[in-house]
């Protein structure tokens, strides 16, 4: 896409238009750049440095080389946490993409409840994480909470929700999904609305079923939107741990909700292991950068082939 743009807009023209050169561009870039350097990259370098030390915030840090990284790779807690994080991130992302799209289809349907549906699906997005965690924590009370009461009405056995290792992570995923799916859903909705009606009608006239139209035309046309949703969701979910903090599961039971972000937080501020926490942070950064890079390459290829 960028390549095509360059052909239609020769560089020389744009330089001529609004200045250029480093001197010309710098004043525009400066505000953002200063903030990024001060509050993102400088501290990132500090974190990188601390990851090679035994920093505990109590004493001057001592250089320990790769010790923290060695410890990390051998640590069962870390590997467990990584598994939990990947499950959480992939599950939430898959739900947001899949059901987000499905909800968008439904939100586009002209019904009496169209406006209600749109409003309802997006409403949790404006509810804060803290509020969401508080509400759901009580709703998930296994003894007499409304969720189990609901299951009982349906003739289903009650669940332990956050109190059982086999359901705790799924419960957190459910909360994250409720809180988060509104955004991808409306993004998809906008994507749907941008698809030319004639295209769909032509397909209909050719005798395609609704499902065929969706599979052959709509979903492929939504691919760029999917890329954006995927990217935002993955990057966000891999870092997130606010829910865990407020739900006070302490990463449990049995480590089943020990998201990497929470593991880092705990090591830094409860276990006096800042150096180790920094090594974990560096790992998380590299992981996210790698994910972003893979995704970028994938979307680039897609664009080229189209």
């Amino acid at each position: 896409m960028a390549v095509a743009r360059r052909f239609t807009n020769p560089r020389s023209l744009s330089i001529q238009r609004f200045g250029g050169g480093l001197g010309g561009a710098l004043p525009y870039l400066l505000p953002a750049l200063v903030i990024f350097v001060l509050f993102s990259y400088y501290p990132l370098l500090r974190v990188l440095y601390l990851s090679f030390t035994d920093a505990d915030l109590l004493r001057p840090p001592q250089w320990v080389g790769l010790e923290n990284y060695r410890k990390m790779l051998l640590s069962r807690e870390f590997l467990g946490s990584l598994g939990v994080t990947a499950t959480f991130a992939l599950a939430v992302t898959a739900l947001e993409v899949g059901l987000g799209m499905a909800l968008a289809f439904l939100m586009q349907a002209k019904t009496r409840f169209q406006s209600l549906l749109r409003g309802a699906v997006f409403a949790p997005v404006v509810v804060s994480t803290v509020s969401a965690a508080l509400i759901w924590q009580y709703m998930m009370n296994p003894n007499g909470g409304p969720l189990n009461a609901g299951l009982q009405t349906l003739g289903l056995p009650p669940l332990g929700w956050l109190t059982r290792p086999e359901t705790a992570l799924a419960s957190v995923i459910l909360i994250a999904f409720w809180k988060g799916v509104g955004l991808p859903a409306v993004i998809y909705l906008a994507g749907l609305q941008a698809i030319p009606k004639e295209l769909l009608e032509a397909a209909r006239v050719d005798g395609a079923t609704t499902w065929q139209v969706a599979r052959r035309i709509t979903i492929p046309l939504l691919a760029p939107t999917t890329m954006v949703v995927l990217f935002l969701s993955l990057v966000g979910t891999f870092q997130s741990y606010g829910l865990i903090l407020v739900l006070r599961t302490d990463g449990g039971p049995v480590g089943s909700t020990n998201l990497l972000g929470y593991h880092i937080y705990q090591n830094a501020f409860q276990y006096f292991q800042m150096g180790y926490a920094c090594a974990l942070s560096v790992f998380l950064f590299l992981l996210l950068a790698a994910l972003a890079w893979i995704q970028f390459r994938l979307s680039e290829r897609r664009v080229h082939y189209q």
């Binding site: 953002a32 509050f39 993102s40 400088y42 501290p43 990132l44 500090r46 880092i264 830094a268 942070s281």
Partner: peptide
């Protein structure tokens, strides 16, 4: 540089 900030786990930078 701008895009990279999205990848930095913000809360890791608390202390610095």
């Amino acid at each position: 540089l701008a895009l990279g900030t999205l990848m930095i786990p913000g809360d890791a930078l608390l202390i610095p």
